[in-house]
Each structure stands twice: as C-alpha cells, then as structure tokens.
C-alpha cells in the first residue's frame, strides 16, 4: 500500500524554508500541483510531505524592476497570458497559452514548469530566449543561476533539496526586437510538445540586418537549449526565407530527440528545421509590425 503523504500548507516564506531545511528531499513542493499530483498518482513520487506554497505571500506577482521583469514562483500561466508586461512577450505568452487547458493554466505555474524539468517544458525555450535567471532561497542564503545552468537534465535541476525557487527574472527586451513561439503537436491544444521553438530577432533599423538572434528549442533533447549554430548564421544577415530555412537546418546541431508514443525521432528531426524557420519568420514579422506601429 502506498505510504501516506503528509500535506503541509505553508503560509509564510520562513515556514517553507524552515521546512525544507528540516525535510530536504523528503519534502515535495507543490503549488498548483498539476504535475505533482499526476506523478504522485502514478507512483513516480513518494515524498513524506507535500509542502504546499500557494498561500505564501509575495510570490505571485509579475513586477518590472532593475534587471528586468520578475515573475514570482506562484505566477501562473493564466497570469502570463493576461498580464500586460508578459503579454507583450510572444515567446512566453504564446507558450503559456498552449500549456494544457484553462484548468492547468489557472493554477499551473511558470516556475513549476521549469522545476519539473520536462524536456518538453513549454515555457523553458521562451525563457531561454529572454536570458532568464532563476532565484533560489534557502534558510539564510540565496543564489541566482542562469536558466541554462539551472536545468541539468530530464527531471533534473540544480535546485538543492533545501532550496525554494522564489522566482525568475527575464532581461529587458531590446528595442527593434520581435519574437515568437511555435509548438508542434497533433491537436491544436492539450499537447505535450513534440517540438517547441522560441525565437527572438533584433533587427538594426539602420542596416536592416539582424543584430541579435536567439533560437531556443525544446523536446528535441533531454534539456531545452539554445541553438548557437542557428544564431550565428543569422547575425549580421538580412532576414530572408532562405536564411531562416538555413538557420532551421542549423538547429539540428545539438538535437538528439527520442522516439516516444507522441512522435518519432525521425518526425521530430523533420519538423524541427521547419518550426525554427517559421518561428524566425514570425519574429521577423513582429519586428516589422513593431516598426510600423512606431
């Protein structure tokens, strides 16, 4: 028989870090629980304590500050969809819009999506494009890690058992930029990504060439990652369909997808370059649209 789990609903930050300090890996943090409860039911987790943090004050806001936009640990996908600050960031907002249904978006958190560390985590590519930093706290200390150093592997992060991820910060968005998120799934919603791509282009308005390029891909390797070969190909060039297609092909470098029930490796490899090219094309369109509005 499954050993009974204790549920502790914390109401203060101190309560959480104290409990983590005491329990370490015996505690499983839970916010909306949309991943945790399923894993628990499948027997993939067997913590002693579910440490519930939804009531902890101060973790549920999107706030602009020095260093960029801060998303607290309890910021949900629904908030990312609706908050004006995040709404403007297509690589994030479009990803949040496509995480499960409303039932998941209403209580599922961005930080939860990152900490769960699924290779198909929908928010991770968009956050990588935005140089996200992850803030961790434990009793008496804090630290901050770049997202690409935080996610270490499939279901594996740099979080120590005593640490709470309190939020993430994304860097200020440069001017003349456009971004996009492309998710590949069989249906138009409720899909675990088969391939996910987030891109951001900055186009120098004086030269019309790409000043900065970010390409991040998910579900094609154990860890969502940036695609430097694609990015290098883009920088300094004029945005064209051929260039985007070439950058798409370059994204295959570092991609090592698996065969699973959702899609074959062969399909993922076929679709990745096309999805990258499409995301780049949309990003470029967004730059143009922003320019024409300005």
């Amino acid at each position: 028989m499954q050993s009974p789990v204790r549920f502790h609903s914390a109401t203060t930050f101190e309560e959480v870090v104290d409990a983590l300090d005491e329990l370490g890996s015996e505690a499983r943090l839970i916010a909306g629980g949309t991943d945790v409860m399923i894993q628990l039911a499948r027997g993939e987790l067997s913590p002693q304590v579910l440490l519930h943090i939804e009531r902890v004050p101060g973790l549920g806001t999107v706030a602009a500050g020095e260093g960029g936009l801060h998303l607290g640990a309890l910021v949900t996908h629904a908030m990312v969809r609706s908050d004006p600050a995040t709404c403007a960031l297509a690589a994030l907002a479009d990803a949040a819009r496509q995480v499960g249904g409303w039932q998941t978006q209403a209580i599922g958190t961005v930080v939860g999506n990152i900490v769960n560390a699924s290779p198909a985590a929908d928010l991770t590519p968009g956050l990588l494009v935005h140089d996200a930093m992850v803030h961790l706290s434990r009793r008496g200390s804090e630290r901050t890690l770049p997202l690409d150093q935080f996610v270490k592997g499939r279901r594996e992060t740099a979080r120590e058992p005593q640490e709470l991820v309190t939020g993430i910060t994304i860097a200020p968005t440069p001017e003349h930029s456009g971004e996009a998120f492309v998710k590949v799934g069989r249906r138009k919603a409720m899909e675990v990504s088969i391939v996910a791509v987030a891109t951001r282009l900055v186009v120098d308005p004086s030269t019309g060439t790409i000043a900065d390029a970010r390409v991040a891909v998910g579900a094609v390797s154990p860890i969502p990652h940036r695609a430097p070969a694609s990015e290098q190909l883009l920088i300094g060039q004029r945005p064209t369909a051929d260039l985007f297609a070439a950058a798409g092909r370059a994204a295959l470098e570092g991609a090592d997808p698996i065969d699973d029930v959702r899609a074959s490796r062969r399909y993922r490899l076929a679709v990745l370059p096309r999805a990258v090219a499409q995301a780049l094309s949309r990003s470029s369109d967004h730059v143009d649209a922003a320019r024409s509005v300005a």
């Binding site: 839970i30 909306g32 629980g33 409860m37 399923i38 039932q103 209580i107």
Partner: peptide
C-alpha cells in the same frame, strides 16, 4: 471552481 478558477478536481489536493 476554486476561488473562481476552473481546476481539474481529479488532480487537485483537497488539503489545499
């Protein structure tokens, strides 16, 4: 609905 938000009750803990 929990505090006006739609959730899947099959994966939400009562204790929360």
């Amino acid at each position: 609905l929990v505090d006006d938000r739609p959730i899947d009750a099959c994966i939400y803990p009562t204790a929360a």
